[in-house]
């Protein structure tokens, strides 16, 4: 069996935990995020003949009061940068976190999730910004944790990229 560490990164309240909760069943309480800044969950993903055991490090959202610890990202094989489509400021935070992750885990694969697609009419993130991300070589997926849109696809895609 293959085991992979992946991280969920993004600004505060972009929906990282909601995305994870859509994807896994957890044994740890959410209180760990506010204490040590990370909560870990697990999910088995099967790709063809390969079973992959994903260890999801749901890292506390970065804001003015708490910075993401780079050590949590080290050793990750992949990570999600989660951006809240309805809050434009989360775009920049996401890009900064991407740089941090790239630095901590240079070999890791990245997928950018523009979350809250159920509120697409209220989006502040523009098509231009999304197009820029794609042109910079990022894999971008629009998700909705609330309506369970493209969540499974996102995790499967990152897994596929990691074991390629």
């Amino acid at each position: 069996m293959i085991k992979k560490k992946i991280c969920m990164l993004g600004a505060f309240a972009v929906g990282k935990t909601s995305l994870v909760q859509r994807f896994v069943n957890s044994i740890f309480s959410g209180k760990y995020q506010t204490t040590i800044g990370v909560k870990i969950d697990q999910k088995m993903v099967s790709l063809g003949e390969t079973d992959v055991n994903l260890l999801l490090w749901d890292i506390h959202g970065e804001d003015d009061f708490q910075k993401v610890k780079a050590t949590y990202v080290m050793g990750a094989s992949g990570y999600f940068i989660v951006i809240d489509g309805t809050r434009s400021e989360t775009y920049q935070v996401g890009l900064e976190l991407e740089k941090l992750a790239k630095n901590a885990a240079p070999q890791a694969k990245c997928v950018i999730l523009i979350n809250k697609s159920d509120l697409i009419r209220d989006w502040e993130i523009t098509h231009g910004q999304i197009a820029k991300l794609i042109s910079d070589g990022f894999k971008v997926i629009q998700t909705s944790a609330k309506d369970n849109l493209a969540v499974e696809t996102a995790f499967t895609e990152l897994t596929r990229m990691m074991i390629k």
Binding site: I36, I40, D41, N53, K69
Partner: peptide, 13 residues
């Protein structure tokens, strides 16, 4: 697996 990762996170923290 989860315990191991959590232990690792605590150690890092």
């Amino acid at each position: 697996d989860l315990v191991s990762s959590m232990l690792s996170a605590i150690k890092d923290f």
